[in-house]
Design a protein around this nucleic acid. Structure first.
Lengths: 233, 233
DNA sequence: CTAGACCATATTTTCGAAAATCATACCGTT
DNA sequence: AACGGTATGATTTTCGAAAATATGGTCTAG
């Protein structure tokens, strides 16, 4: 297969549809496709090199995740943003993440501790490299996601983890939205370190308190520096 | 349009895909399509009279809801059931529903009270008609769903309501699974009445306690009477 | 000048054929 | 007999044309 060796067509999944779902998700989260933007098939077809129906499948999946808004007979658009939605997402994240942290701290074994410690370690390494604009570094984004994922990974519920992951994605889009206007990243490194320590030392109450503050302060920052974008919709 | 006047093709949505998504969801929840059943396109094509790609879109949407299991390159199947999944769904429902009941009781206005009272009234009316096998009566199912929906409808978060709705659907499938083996329905009418009264009188702690017991006892019944089906998978 | 009907165009939605992939049975070799 | 490779049929996945629907502009009647 000479062609696929040059530029593999399917990078993330076995099917083209799964691949495009993944790429579209990334672009929407990163606000490369801005909120509210109409997703016309002609444009998508050229950009992603797939047919109508394949794109349709991807958009349908993303609509179920809340990243795309399907308007029957009138196509799709990137899910709009709003203050209300930001509040709801933040709120839902706190409710669920707090519970999952508690369960993970209660049930986590050695592997869990190792995962928490090592993902934080990697995150800090990457931050040292370029501490200015972490959100623009794809590696930082992945490492950040993996650290937070590791924290709750021992909760024992795949169902709640899936819900948590969707909410995390939706929240990350808001972080990107405000990244261009935020003067300077606040001290996330310190917060992550404190959360890790509370978790590893099995201090559930403290970990929960820190996580909630972490989620809410991020959200507050978005509202503060991207407020004008939230009202415009 | 003579043909569509005879048998309208799209009953639930403007698009055929949305319509089929709806119909497939109903059949899966009702276990007309049994858990684990392979969903082959030839069969679906004949049964629903739609083309490959339209069916694919519907299946993709249901996969995101957790009612269908997509196995890349090897098609779709009805999501399997298991003890573990039942426990997770029950558990997640309690976590979320309890919170939403609290918020609804705190925020609910007159319209909310009226909705709770009237949906329960309708439910009781239907139960009087045929108290034996409520789950086999489509009207009872709708009324039951609407009562529980009304209870949490004033919570103020569309995001959490959407998550709740998905979990409700997944739980309802388990109820259907055990319905054929359960000797007799327990006293749901009384439970619903008590929940309504606690909610209307703004007794949040009591309402929460009753709802949790309601959800857990339903789940326990499923495990008790459909246990053999859960282990077989 | 406004409201409504009508046409032309743009866009989405649906379809079935064609390509890609998987599962199975068969065959030859060890 | 066990194993590995290969051909065959079944099934999924993808494609672009065709149908259905929405959009926007023009004309006419009131």
């Amino acid at each position: 297969m000479p062609e696929s060796a040059i530029r593999p067509r399917k990078e993330f999944g076995k099917t083209i549809a799964a691949d495009i779902t993944h790429r579209l998700r990334e672009e929407i989260i990163a606000c490369a496709l801005p909120p509210g933007e109409p997703l016309r098939f002609d444009v998508l077809r050229e950009r992603f090199g797939a047919s109508f129906t394949t794109l349709r499948e991807a958009l349908t999946a993303l609509a179920a995740e809340g990243l795309v808004d399907a308007q029957e007979q009138r196509g799709f658009r990137v899910a709009p943003v709003s203050r209300q939605d930001l509040v709801e997402v933040t709120d839902a994240r706190v409710l669920i993440e707090v519970e999952l942290i508690r369960r993970s701290i209660e049930r986590g074994d050695d592997d869990w501790e190792i995962a928490v410690i090592s993902t934080l370690h990697r995150l800090k390494r990457i931050e040292q490299r370029d501490p200015e604009h972490p959100l623009r570094d794809p590696e930082w984004k992945i490492a950040h996601r993996q650290f937070h994922q590791a924290l709750v990974s021992a909760c024992g519920s795949a169902t709640l983890l899936a819900i948590r992951a969707e909410l995390f994605d939706r929240a990350e889009r808001y972080r990107h939205l405000s990244a261009n206007f935020r003067p300077r990243p606040r001290d996330k490194a310190g917060e992550h370190q404190a959360i890790m320590q509370a978790a590893i030392s099995r201090n559930a109450d403290l970990a929960v308190q820190l996580i909630e503050a972490h989620i809410r302060s991020t959200s507050d920052n978005v509202a503060k520096y991207a407020g004008h974008l939230l009202d415009a919709e």
